[in-house]
């Protein structure tokens, strides 16, 4: 009796798993990170470090800037945008949301945040594009390089 139930369960599970996997495509849209290289050869930290901890760098620098007026470029949010987001595309600023208010795959931050499904709050207040900021100093690069 028990073994029959188990057998049925196992069959169901197998069926279910097959259904789930057959619904998956192996061509999930990848983040389009090539825009990262638009202005400089390397980032301020190695790529792996940035992928894991960019939010910590930005948050640390945020308090340094807010309370102490420290405005070094290395971990500055403004510089991230300045370097990673093109000034213009087809004559228009590249915003993190497209006209339908979906994350814009042309925007460096948005493309990856869409891929991992993490909401991005920064741009509710911060400018999402260089908006005429001084051109980036490509020599700001310290450490790491893009893969």
């Amino acid at each position: 009796m028990t073994s029959r139930v188990n057998g049925t369960l196992a069959t169901l599970l197998l069926l279910f798993t097959t259904m789930v996997f057959s619904g998956c495509e192996d061509t999930a849209p990848k983040p389009r990170l090539e825009t990262a290289k638009a202005k400089s050869e390397s980032c301020v930290e190695p790529t792996g470090v940035m992928r894991r901890t960019h939010m910590d760098f930005i948050k640390h620098q945020r308090d340094e800037t807010m309370y102490k007026g420290i405005r070094t470029q290395k971990h500055s949010f403004k510089e991230c945008i300045n370097c990673h987001v093109p000034d213009k595309k087809d004559g228009k600023p590249v915003n993190y949301l497209d006209s339908n208010h979906n994350l814009n795959p042309d925007h460096f931050c948005a493309t990856c945040h869409a891929y991992v499904g993490v909401k991005i709050d920064c741009f509710e207040c911060h400018s999402d594009n260089p908006a005429g900021a001084a051109p980036v100093d490509a020599n700001h690069a310290v450490g790491g390089s893009h893969e």
Binding site: K78, I81, N82, P93, N95, E124, C125, H126, S127, P130, A131, G132, A133
Partner: peptide
Amino acid sequence: AIFDQKPDTP
């Protein structure tokens, strides 16, 4: 909601 902020003025 605000869009197109100045980079120095969030």
